[in-house]
Amino acid sequence: MTDTAGLAMEAADLGRRFGRARLSPAWALRGCAFQLPAGRVCAVVGHNGAGKSTLLALAAGLLVPTEGTIRVLGTDPASARARVGFVSQEKPLYPQLTIAETLRMGADLNPDHWDAATGERIVADGDLDPKSRIRALSGGQRTRVALALALAKRPDLLLLDEPMADLDPLARHELMGVLMSQAAQHGTTIVMSSHVVAELEGSCDHLLLIGAGRVRLSGEIDDVLTAHARLSGPAGTPLAPHTVIESRTTGRQLTALVRKSGPLPTDLHPATPSLEELVLGYLRNPGTSVTTTSPSEKAAA
């Protein structure tokens, strides 16, 4: 049995359906099973409508599973709520409040574990006036306030749905640095979804790839990458026994992305794919089977 004490998130046969069952039931997620060890920074990637936001809302306790279970920080999402920070795509804030009032509200709602200095610093780094009203802020500025609110709560698990989408490149880099420093200092587990895989590559160490409502890949990014190889060689080279994720023949040249089983022929110039190459390979080929790498036992930071 796996030790469940060190898990930040664990799903078993998790499913969520929207709409009434007899009128074309739409499963946003179905049969999802994965484990996320505590202390990781996990990337959640997948197509639009793959179920990423549904998964995060289930973990935050804002949605209830239709079937199966999800456990968060060793308990159910509702009981874990005080220790979980969630920033949804819409970044809901009260438009009539000022930034200072918003942060004060956060302090009142989280009396035992409010880190006012962190919240104020994140706002100040964006050159925002605490007296500005939320309604007057741009999308990116609102994101900054939402992140300040979530981080000042000093959560054990931080769930971020497309957190960087509204931000300019400079603010992205800076706020990603703030998130990473939070993880380094407090061992916060961070789960974030994004469409920009290249942006997640250096920052995340764990991957959850969702396709058509199911988990298609889950595991430590290093393990997942080294389990695959990018090959190139003469057309017609047999690729068995490796599992072909994607292959293309251009003239006399064959290029392929495979999941390794056994040693690779060196004449195919095997190379480890980048995270982006791997994710795109899987997303372009929705038919390939579900593969899960079990989390390796690594000391938490």
Partner: peptide
């Protein structure tokens, strides 16, 4: 530099620094 100092400046994962 501490892991925290490195990741704050570079936005890379702290486990990578360690």
């Amino acid at each position: 530099p501490t892991a925290r100092e490195v990741v704050e400046a570079t936005a890379i994962n702290p486990n990578t620094v360690l």
